[in-house]
Write a protein that binds this DNA or RNA. Structure first.
Lengths: 339, 339
DNA sequence: GTGAAAGCGCTAACAT
DNA sequence: ATGTTAGCGCTTTCAC
C-alpha cells in the first residue's frame, strides 16, 4: 500500500504538505504542489479512508434505511438518494427496515456504528428513545422521509398525500361518480389517514361527506384489493368507482372486477395511488396519483448533504406534490352499471 | 465519545483485555470478562469502526455495483445481496453503473477507496486493465454477477440463460408453433446471445434450425417490442408466437398486438424472459422464463462472504437455473390466425 | 509556506 | 491470563 509517507518522500516534502494539497487547504507553494501532484500520480496514491475517517471523524458515507429495497417503489427512492450522494461524492450505505421495529432499529444502529456522516430514514415505526439517544449521541444529522414527527429529525420530506388523494377524488367526482368505495391500506399508516383526509376534502368541496361514500381499510396488498372487490361486488355492483389506497390494491381490484365480468372503465372505474412500476402495464393502464418518490429520495439526500456542509436548512420540512396521472381506468359512470 | 480506554478504566483492566472480549479471541478469565461486559453496558460503549478498520484493514462492508438500483429487476438482486450481508453482519455499500464504462469504473474505484472488504459486481462492460489493477492492488475478492470472463473475478454467478430460453422455446414448439419470431435485446449482450443459443438448441432437438424462425435484435425496451410488432404485423400476421428477449420487450409487443386487434393468446402467443415485476400484471398474465435474480444476488454475496472468511470456493462459478413460468399468454396456434 | 510531532481508537505482538 | 507497547495512515496544531 502506498501511503502519504511514500508520496512525501518522492516529492521531497513533509507529510503535512502532502496532506494539504490533498485536502486543498492551507498554503502550499505552486512548486511543491506540482511536485506532490506528480508524486501522487506516479505512485498511484489513494488516501486511506479509514485513517482519514479516524482522524477527521468523517466517513463521507450516508446511511439510508428504506422500507424494502426489493420493492420497485422504494427502489425508486433509493435511486434518487443514491444519485444525490454520488453527485456529492458521498457513498450510500443501505439497509432495509422491512416495516419491523426491531429490524429498523438494528438498521439504524448499524449505520450509526459504521460511522455514517448522516442518515436518511424511511421508517414505518416510531423511533424508540434509546435509539434516538444513540443517534443523538453520534451527533449526526437525520432527514426523515415520509414522516416528520420524529424527535431526532433535522429535516423531513413528505409527499402531499392529502392533496394527491383530493385530486384523485375530485377527478372521480367530476366525472360524475357518486357511488364510490375507497379501499384504504389501513389506518395504522399515516399516509392512509392523510389520503382519507384528502378524499374528505374533495367531498366537502362538493357538499358531500365521507358518509356519502364507502371507506374501508385493509392492507397495501394486491390480495386485499382482490378480496375486497369479490366481497363487495359478490351479488351486485354497488359502486361505479373504486379509489384504491395504492396501485397494488388497484391491481387486485382490477383483477377481481374482470373476473366478475365487469369492464373497466365502462362498468367500473378504478383509480390507484403511487404510480408504481406496474401501473402503466395494467389493462387498461391505471389512472393513478403519482408519488414522485425518486424525487423524494433525492431531495432528502440533498437536505442531508446541505446539513452536512454546515448550512442550515431553509425549510426543515418539504412537502412534495402528488400529481394525478390520467390513463385509461376511469370514465364517466354509464348510469347503466350492472346491478 | 466513549472509548475502549474508558471501558478499561471502569472495568479496571487493560485496553487489550477489553479488546479481547470484544473480538472474543484470546484468553480472558470469566471474572474480567464479566467486568468488561458490565462496563461496556453501563457506558454504552460501541467500538469505533474507523479505528478498528484502520488497524485491522477490515471495514466489514461489502461493495456492490449493480446496473441500476432503480430498476425493479436489479432491485431484486440488491435485495438478495443485502440480505446475505445483513445475515453475516456486513454492510452493503451500493453504487450503480448504468451500463456505462466510465460510471462503472467510477463506482468500482469508489468502493475500493472506501475500503470495502470485497466486491459484488454486476457490470455491463469489460473491466479495463487499470481498474483491474486497482482492484488487484487492494487485494480484495470479487464475485461477478452475470458474466464470468473478468480477469479479477474470484467467483461468478450466472443465470442459465440458454437453458431458460431453451425451455421457453421448447414450450412454444411443443404447443405446435412454427411461425415464431424472437425479438432479442441486442447481440452486444452476452445474455442475449446465450438466449439465442438456447432457442437454437430447442429448435435442433426438433430437427429445426434458427433459419426456420425469425430472429431479430433491438434493445431491451418496451419501445423496441412495440415498434417491432407494428412493423412485423403491419399488413398480416406472419407469426403465431413471439419470444421476447425480456419482459419489457414482451410488454411492448403485447401492447402493439392489442392495438392491432390481435387477441393474446388466441391469435398470437407471447412469451417473455426475466419474470420482472410487471409480468404478472399484464393482461393476459405473461408466460415467461424466470431469472431468480434475488437468489443470484444472495448467492453472489454468500460466495464473497465465504471468500472473506478465508474459505476457498468449492465452485468458482455457479449457474442458477431459469425456470419457465406458465401463465396465460401462450396457447396452441389456432391454425386460423388472422392473415 | 513548511515541517515536526502528537494523537484519533483500536489491535496485536510481545513480555510477563 | 493479562498488561505494555508500538503503530495503522492520516490530519492538525504548533513552531519556525
Amino acid at each position: 500500500m502506498v501511503t502519504i509517507k511514500d508520496v512525501s518522500r518522492l516529492a521531497k516534502v513533509s507529510k503535512s504538505t502532502v496532506s494539504r494539497v490533498i485536502a486543498d487547504n492551507g498554503y502550499v507553494s505552486e512548486t511543491k504542489r506540482r511536485a506532490v501532484e506528480e508524486a501522487i500520480a506516479t505512485l498511484g496514491y489513494r488516501p486511506n479512508t479509514m485513517a482519514r475517517g479516524l482522524r477527521s471523524n468523517r466517513s463521507n458515507i450516508i446511511g439510508g434505511v428504506v422500507l424494502d429495497v426489493t420493492s420497485p417503489f422504494y427502489a425508486q427512492m433509493v435511486g434518487g438518494t443514491q444519485q444525490a450522494c454520488r453527485d456529492a461524492g458521498k457513498g450510500l450505505l443501505l439497509s432495509s427496515g422491512f416495516g419491523d421495529t426491531a429490524e429498523e432499529e438494528r438498521a439504524i444502529i448499524e449505520l450509526v456504528d459504521r460511522s455514517c456522516d448522516g442518515l436518511v430514514l424511511n421508517l414505518e415505526n416510531p423511533i424508540r428513545r434509546e435509539v434516538a439517544d444513540i443517534i443523538r449521541a453520534a451527533g449526526i444529522p437525520v432527514v426523515m422521509v415520509g414522516a416528520s414527527d420524529y424527535p431526532v429529525a433535522d429535516g423531513a420530506v413528505t409527499v402531499d398525500n392529502a392533496g394527491g388523494a383530493e385530486a384523485g377524488m375530485a377527478y372521480l367526482l367530476d366525472q360524475g361518480h357518486r357511488r364510490i368505495a375507497h379501499l384504504g391500506g389501513g389506518t395504522a399508516h399515516r399516509d392512509s389517514r392523510q389520503r382519507v383526509r384528502g378524499i374528505e376534502r374533495a367531498l366537502e368541496a362538493r357538499g358531500l361527506t365521507l358518509d356519502d361514500i364507502n371507506v374501508e381499510h385493509g392492507t397495501f396488498t394486491e390480495q386485499y384489493g382482490y378480496d375486497a372487490i369479490k366481497r363487495l361486488f359478490a351479488h351486485k355492483a354497488p359502486y361505479t368507482a373504486i379509489f384504491a389506497g395504492d396501485d397494488d390494491i388497484a391491481a387486485g381490484a382490477v383483477l377481481a372486477l374482470k373476473e366478475l365480468g365487469y369492464r373497466i372503465p365502462e362498468d367500473v372505474s378504478v383509480i390507484g395511488f403511487d404510480d408504481n412500476f406496474h401501473a402503466r402495464h395494467l389493462t387498461p393502464a391505471l389512472t393513478t396519483v403519482r408519488q414522485p418518490i425518486g424525487e423524494v429520495g433525492r431531495i432528502a439526500a440533498e437536505m442531508l448533504l446541505k446539513l452536512l456542509s454546515g448550512h442550515p436548512l431553509e425549510q426543515k420540512s418539504v412537502i412534495v406534490p402528488a400529481e394525478l396521472i390520467v390513463r385509461g381506468s376511469v370514465a364517466a359512470p354509464s348510469g347503466s352499471a350492472k346491478s
